[in-house]
Each structure stands twice: as C-alpha cells, then as structure tokens.
Design a protein around this nucleic acid. Structure first.
Lengths: 169, 169
DNA sequence: AATTACATGTAATCCGTTACATGATTGA
DNA sequence: TCAATCATGTAACGGATTACATGTAATT
C-alpha cells in the first residue's frame, strides 16, 4: 500500500493534519502494518490535494506553522473505494530474527539460545503495547486489528517457548 | 537486513550462484521473511567479492553465461559473526489486508465479508506452500522456521474464523 | 508455438528515509 | 537545562525494483 492510499484511508476515518497522520502511523493500530515519515506524508498530501482527492483548510496558530487540516472529497472517497475493490497484496513479513536463526546455526550456534531469549522478551513487549491500545476501548475494525495483532504475538511467543529446545540440541 | 548480509548468510549454508540465491529467496524458507531481485543480488555479490568477504570461481558452460559460484571467505565468516552478534531489528509486518479492513469499515462496509473470505483462502494457500516445504524433510533451523511460519498462518486463519463476525454486525 | 528454466548483468526509475531548516512551549 | 511535543516543508541520498539486453534448451 502506497503512502497516498494510506493517507486517503486515514482521512476516511476523520479529518486530520499531516502531523496527526504521522502520529497515527507511528503509534496507533496502524503502526503494526505500516510506516511513513514526514518526508513522504507531506508531499503525498500536497499531491492528493492537487488531484482533488482531498481538500485543505488552514487554522492559524500563534508561534507555530498554521495547522493544515485535510478532508476527503467525494472524488477521494471514490478513489479509495476503487482501491478497496482490488484484492490486497500478500503480506510482507520481514523478520531479521528468523534470518539470524538460520544463519547462526552454521556460524555461531552458541548465539541461538540468546537470540531466542531476546525474542521472547520482544514478544512480551509487543504484547504490552497492544494491551495498552486495547485498554483504550477501541471498537469495530480497530479493535479487531489490535486483537489480531495480539493473537499473532501470543502465538509466536507460545511457539518459541514450546519449540526452541529443538534448535539447541 | 540488507541484501549483502542476506547473501553472506545464504552462502554460509553452502556455495551458490547468484541465480540460486535468487531462487532460494523467491521460493525457499527465506521467501517468508525476505525478498530480493537480480538487480540487487548481482551487484551485492560483486561488492562482497571486492571487499574480500566472498570469492568467486567460474564454471564454463556451453550455450549460456558462465556459472559464477561464490564461497564465503574467513573474513566473510567474521563479518557475518559480527552482524549476528547485534540484536535483530524488530519485525516489519505489512499487511494490506488489515489496512483494507480499517478503511473498508467507513467506505464500503459490504466489502468486509468479502475481504475476510478472500483472506481465509489466502491463508489456506500459504499453509499448503509451507506444508510442501515441510514434506521435503528439512532439519534444524530450517525446519524450525517453516514450522514457525505454519503456526503463524494457522493462528491467523483461526482468529479470522472465530472473530470475523464481530466485524460484520 | 509459447512459456519456463537456465544464467548474468546494467540502466532507468521509483519510493522512501534521513537530515536539514525554523522555532515556541511544556514537562522532567 | 534538556528533551519532547507541536507543526510544516525541502533536498540529498540510498536502496531496491523494473525493464532492458542476450541467448539456449526443455517442456507444455
């Protein structure tokens, strides 16, 4: 999913500024399947405005740049609908941990137990973050996505705990 | 993980040509956490050779370009060891499916059931692919990684089946 | 007859990050 | 006092994909 679609989608949930979009992508339920920096979000919003998919109104502020609040237009809704009709692309899961396991086997076998231990802690952290998000009582798809993430983290942690000994002996 | 490290790691499992590395990354147990195209693999191998981390011997073939078989050097082993000492970076999981769910809720709610159905089929396919890999009787970390992937796919499919109704009502 | 597998490599292009530029306010 | 939050935006740079270039042999 490109950043323009991501912005369109986030704006479908409500008006927002570029700064707010960045925050949602960095911290909210989006953070588990997407990333984006200011350097890509701001230009995307400008382009989407030029294309007529969103509009922008400015809110004057003292001591800092004007807030630019973006809203979806009817054309933008159509565009997003069109995108949603297409089948989502397969997931991209990139795990340095799994790669490290494969390579450590030959190169430094004594590192493996260590990698697994670190990983279990990693999952514990991820679970904590997701539980915090859940405690804010999200509803609908948002809740579903967070619970999905939680389930995946728990399944991964469980698998590690039950099977890691097969790696070290 | 950058492509140079990926090549180094794959070569730690045994000598290989660029073409073979590409195949492993596209089809083997690597395909579930990494990607790379010829356009990045060939230049990476050239660079690694220049840096002394791998060596290259050519095998003449009739009717097609010489096979260039790469091997890790001692320096390359050290380099890989150094990389493995560092903690792996957090996973990157990008799922257009999850994003589509969040956005479809507002824009085309009647698409949701459809998305979920497609997704269940997607998992079924992934499971088939992984089971095929398992049927080749891998061992060690390779087996572990494939079983890990299987477990994740099954957990995802199960979650969907048990919770998707909360999305549509 | 057409596609896939084999086998390597370069160039154009895209997409995105990082760093830079600017600057006030609030909390630790 | 130092970091973080708020707020936008551009330019340099990097990393990787796609398409191009070349050509045989086996399979469908």
């Amino acid at each position: 999913m490109d950043i323009k679609t991501l912005c369109l989608g986030i704006l479908s949930l409500g008006d927002a500024t570029g700064y707010e979009i960045k925050k949602m992508v960095a911290e909210g339920s989006f953070s588990f399947f997407s990333e984006a920096s200011f350097g890509s979000i701001y230009p995307a919003l400008t382009k989407l405005t030029d294309e007529g998919f969103i509009t922008c109104r400015s809110e004057t502020q003292s001591n800092r740049p004007d807030k630019k609040i973006y809203s979806l237009t009817k054309l933008g809704v159509k565009e997003l609908e069109g995108t949603l009709e297409k089948s989502p692309k397969p997931d991209k899961n990139r795990s340095e941990f799994l790669a490290a396991l494969l390579f450590a086997e030959a190169i430094s076998p004594n590192r493996i137990q260590n990698l697994v231990d670190e990983r279990i802690e990693y999952h514990a952290n991820q679970i904590k973050v997701l539980e915090d998000l859940l405690s804010e009582k999200p509803t609908g798809a948002s809740k579903f996505v967070i619970e999905y993430g939680l389930e995946m983290q728990r399944a991964a942690a469980k698998f590690l705990q039950e099977n890691s000994k097969s790696l070290t002996d």
